[in-house]
C-alpha cells in the first residue's frame, strides 16, 4: 500500500498475475502463479484452522474451537433451512466452498497479498461447477421431470411459450450473477481502498481525512468479505434446493 503514492503505480496493479514457476504442458501455459500460490495458502490455512480447532474437542470450546463450531453451525443451518434434511449429504461441499471463499477474501484484505476471488475466472469456475453439479443432481433425482422447474405452478398453458424462455434465461443467468457478484465486490472494494490510500500520500498533511475514510472502508470490506462468502454459500443451497425439491421456492 505504501507504493500507492507513485504516479506510475496503478490501483489495479494489485490484481496482476505473475508467473512464479513457469510451466508448460503441450503448449498450455500451466505456470504456478501468485493466484495459485494464494489458493494453496487458503487451503493450507483452512486445513490448519480446522485441525487445530478440533484437536482439543473440549466440552467448553476455546476461542479457536468456538470459531470452527460457529462456522460449521452457520453453514449447517443454511443448508438445513434452505434445502432441508435431504441437503445434509451436500453439506461438506457447501462448507468447503464457504471456507475457501471466506479465507481467500480475508487473506486478500492483508496488504501486499493477492485476492484470488477478485478474478472473475476463479469465481466463474466455482459457479460453473455448482451450476453443472446442480443440473446433474436434478436430472439424476427427477429424470426428465426436472424440466418442470421451467414451468411455474398454476400457470395457464397459453402463457407457457412466454414463461418457459424467461425461466430458462433465469436458470442460465445463475452462474453469471453468482460469479460476477463475488468478483465485482472484491474488485471494487480493493480498488477503492487503494485509490483512497493513494490520496493519503498525495495530500500530505491533509491526508488524515482520506486516511480515516480508508479505515472505515476497511471495516466495511471485512464485513463484505464475510457476507459475500455467506451469500455464495446460501445461493448454492438455494440452487441445490431447486434441484432436490423442485417447486418449493
Amino acid at each position: 500500500m505504501e507504493e500507492a503514492g507513485h504516479a506510475e503505480h496503478s490501483p489495479l496493479a494489485q490484481f496482476e498475475i505473475h508467473r512464479l514457476i513457469p510451466l508448460e504442458f503441450f503448449g498450455i501455459d500451466a505456470s504456478f502463479t501468485n493466484a495459485a500460490l494464494f489458493m494453496l495458502i487458503s487451503v493450507a490455512l483452512i486445513t490448519w484452522f480446522l485441525m487445530a480447532a478440533t484437536r482439543g474437542q473440549n466440552l467448553v470450546p476455546g476461542r479457536l474451537q468456538a470459531m470452527a463450531e460457529a462456522s460449521y453451525g452457520l453453514i449447517a443451518g443454511a443448508v438445513r433451512d434452505n434445502v432441508g434434511t435431504e441437503g445434509k449429504q451436500y453439506f461438506p461441499f457447501v462448507f468447503s466452498l464457504f471456507m475457501f471463499i471466506l479465507f481467500a477474501n480475508f487473506i486478500g484484505l492483508i496488504p501486499h497479498t493477492f485476492t484470488v476471488t477478485s478474478h472473475i475466472i476463479v469465481t466463474f469456475a466455482l459457479a460453473m461447477f455448482i451450476f453443472i453439479a446442480v443440473t446433474i443432481i436434478g436430472l439424476w433425482r427427477h429424470k426428465l421431470h426436472f424440466f418442470s422447474l421451467f414451468l411455474p405452478h398454476g400457470v395457464p398453458i397459453f402463457l407457457a411459450p412466454l414463461l418457459v424462455p424467461i425461466e430458462i434465461i433465469g436458470y442460465l443467468t445463475r452462474p453469471i450473477s453468482l460469479s460476477v457478484r463475488l468478483a465485482a465486490n472484491m474488485l471494487a472494494g480493493h480498488t477503492m481502498l487503494e485509490v483512497f490510500a493513494g490520496f493519503v500520500v498525495a495530500l500530505g498533511i491533509f491526508g488524515f481525512a482520506p486516511f480515516l475514510f480508508v479505515i472505515a472502508i476497511y471495516g466495511l470490506e471485512v464485513i463484505v468479505a464475510f457476507l459475500q462468502a455467506y451469500v455464495f454459500a446460501v445461493l448454492t443451497c438455494l440452487y441445490l434446493s431447486d434441484a432436490i425439491n423442485l417447486h418449493k421456492h
Binding site: 434465461i169 433465469g170 442460465l172 443467468t173 453469471i176 450473477s177 460476477v180 457478484r181 465485482a184 465486490n185 475514510f213 479505515i215 472505515a216 472502508i217 476497511y218 471495516g219 466495511l220 471485512v222 464485513i223 463484505v224 464475510f226 457476507l227 459475500q228 451469500v231
Partner: peptide
C-alpha cells in the same frame, strides 16, 4: 452485523448489489 464502520449498512448494500447483478446478468444472458 447490521451496520459496519462509519455507519455504512453492509447488509443493505449487499442486498442492493445482489438485486442489481441479478438484473444485469439476466440482460446479458438474454
Amino acid at each position: 452485523q447490521e451496520t459496519g464502520a462509519g455507519g455504512v449498512n453492509a447488509k443493505g448494500m449487499g442486498a442492493a448489489f445482489r438485486i442489481a447483478t441479478e438484473l444485469i446478468a439476466a440482460l446479458v444472458v438474454g
